[in-house]
Amino acid sequence: MLAADKALEEDLFVSFPFAAYIPKTVTLKPRAGNPPPRLQETAAGLLNSIGLANHGIEAFIRDDLPRLEPMPVPVIASIAGERTEDYGRCAAMLDSRAEVAALELNVSCPNVELDGRALGLDPEKTRQATVLARQATSKFLIVKLTPNVTDIVEIAAAAVDGGADCVSLINTVHGMALDRFSLKPVLGHVTGGLSGPAIKPVALRAVFLVSRELDVPVIGMGGVTTAQDALEFMAAGATAVAVGTASFRDPLVAAAMASELGRLIKEHGIGSAGELIGVAH
């Protein structure tokens, strides 16, 4: 992911270092997001509790999609629901939009209360949300999963059973930080989601297990910071790799990673990126 912000827009549109672009998740109604503070850096990690702050899907379609149209790569719209039905309604609204190449169903935001729990913690709710989206659109459907579950393979299988073409994992890991002086929670939302290099082993395991059991492509993410990380995620079974937090560290890191990845694949004597996928199995 990278921000299509004015400040960097021109550079990125010329040399966009990714194969696809996923803007921030949108919801049916606008959301102000969680109370600040929303960020805290931890050891090799970043805690956030943004809370899906966004201006709603109508404004996304009206204001953002036209701006994203000149992107040199496919745009994947990410949607989240406060209830299961929202996924069907949002998918229907995006179905006719040519600018949207695929849909990501974010069922895994840890900072949004849905009966106190992310929908993606429950296999049946995950399946239902996917079914509703599947009925509303013929677009390629990606379901983004949370690692905060006992058995992520069970949730992934439910998404595929509901009609997902692909699963994307992992979203952030539940976490919190205390203020070193007051010993009270730092984040306004008290708890948040951890990203960055600290969660890479958690993500790698999830990608490995899900891709071994299921017959759909997996998009791997969670702490991908170097080309070596990308290499390992693909070896663990990811067909594509996403970069989030590392882009905050270096907005152009993915371009360097992509060229370095090609060199690493050759160095390992592997014929192509396709042959790399799942060699760890």
Binding site: D5, A7, G33, P36, L46, A53
Partner: peptide
């Protein structure tokens, strides 16, 4: 001042309370 991640108005991490809603410190 605020903690920031992206610095360019995208991530919504650095917001403070404004008179009419949250304000991004970075942008």
């Amino acid at each position: 001042e605020s903690h920031m991640a992206c610095g360019i108005g995208s991530c919504q991490g650095c917001v403070i309370r404004g008179a009419g809603g949250y304000l991004r410190v970075c942008s």
